[in-house]
């Protein structure tokens, strides 16, 4: 984990403190995604399956924004974090698919 984003000549200097700008952009983006999701349902004269796809799409995108930027997953040294969460997600998908498609058969 030696490659930590900063070039060798920088490491002696003061650390660069990251500004709030990136996070405000992420915030605006997630508000926008939320708005799209709500508007699709409220405006809703469209095909039901299409609405579901939009809803799931915006939710997944939003989770990606949250995890990558706010939970620092995009930062270096998060390989075990990704493995931990992904193994959770794998079990979740199994459960959800089981409940949705098998329970009532």
């Amino acid at each position: 984990m030696a490659a930590n984003g900063s070039s060798p000549e920088q490491s002696g200097r003061r650390h660069k403190v990251e500004g709030p700008k990136k996070h405000i952009v992420a915030f605006v983006f997630s508000i926008l995604l939320t708005f799209i999701a709500f508007a699709t349902v409220i405006g809703g004269e469209i095909n039901k399956d299409f609405i579901y796809i939009i809803l799931l799409g915006t939710a997944v995108l939003q989770v990606f924004v949250q995890m990558a930027f706010w939970m620092h997953m995009k930062d270096r040294g998060h390989r075990f974090a990704i493995i931990g969460i992904l193994s959770g997600v794998f079990i979740v998908f199994t459960c959800v698919i089981m409940a949705e498609y098998w329970v009532w058969w």
Partner: peptide
């Protein structure tokens, strides 16, 4: 890793 476990907990509730 705890959050992975929490994901499973909520996943079963969602299911």
């Amino acid at each position: 890793l705890f959050l992975g476990g929490e994901t499973v907990l909520f996943g079963t509730l969602f299911a």
